[in-house]
């Protein structure tokens, strides 16, 4: 495991060649350009899918190469993936509630207050918010 038998106290650090860093950096810049470009193409609901897909690829490049996850001890990768999985559970189960509400009892469909009360105030001549910035 961690303390290998024939450890040398001075294990030479694992150095990546320069061109890998520069290459990955260039790739990240290209992907940024692609995601900006695609966002102006109307794809309906797929815009967000494509955007998140590209962002995930970029994030993965950063994690695996820049953050060395590809070469480090696998436990780091396992922890990283675990955090992503837990976060996914958080998002998925919360949205399973918020998107599926009110199917049996329609009056519980959310949000409870569709329009914020602050806008009702704003329509009155005397602005009670004291903001008056418009």
């Amino acid at each position: 495991m961690n303390t290998s038998q024939n450890q040398t106290a001075f294990a030479a650090p694992h150095v990546l060649p320069l061109k890998i860093y520069l290459g990955v950096g260039a790739l990240l810049l290209i992907l940024t350009g692609v995601t900006v470009g695609v966002s102006f193409v109307p794809l309906g609901g797929f815009n967000v899918v494509v955007a998140l897909l590209i962002a995930s690829v970029k994030a993965l490049l950063v994690a695996l190469i820049f953050m060395h996850l590809l070469w480090d001890h696998k436990i780091l990768l396992i922890f990283f993936v675990t955090a992503i999985v837990i976060l996914t559970i958080f998002i998925a189960l919360t949205m399973f509630d918020t998107m599926e509400r009110g199917l049996v009892n329609p009056e519980t469909r959310s949000p409870i207050q569709q329009d914020a009360i602050i806008y009702q105030n704003q329509q009155q001549p005397a602005n009670t918010n004291g903001t008056g910035g418009h």
Binding site: D97, T98, P111, I112, Q113, D115, A116, I117, I118
Partner: peptide, 9 residues
């Protein structure tokens, strides 16, 4: 809820 938010969240 007064601001359009959701207390259940």
């Amino acid at each position: 809820p007064a601001m359009g938010g959701d207390p259940v969240l």
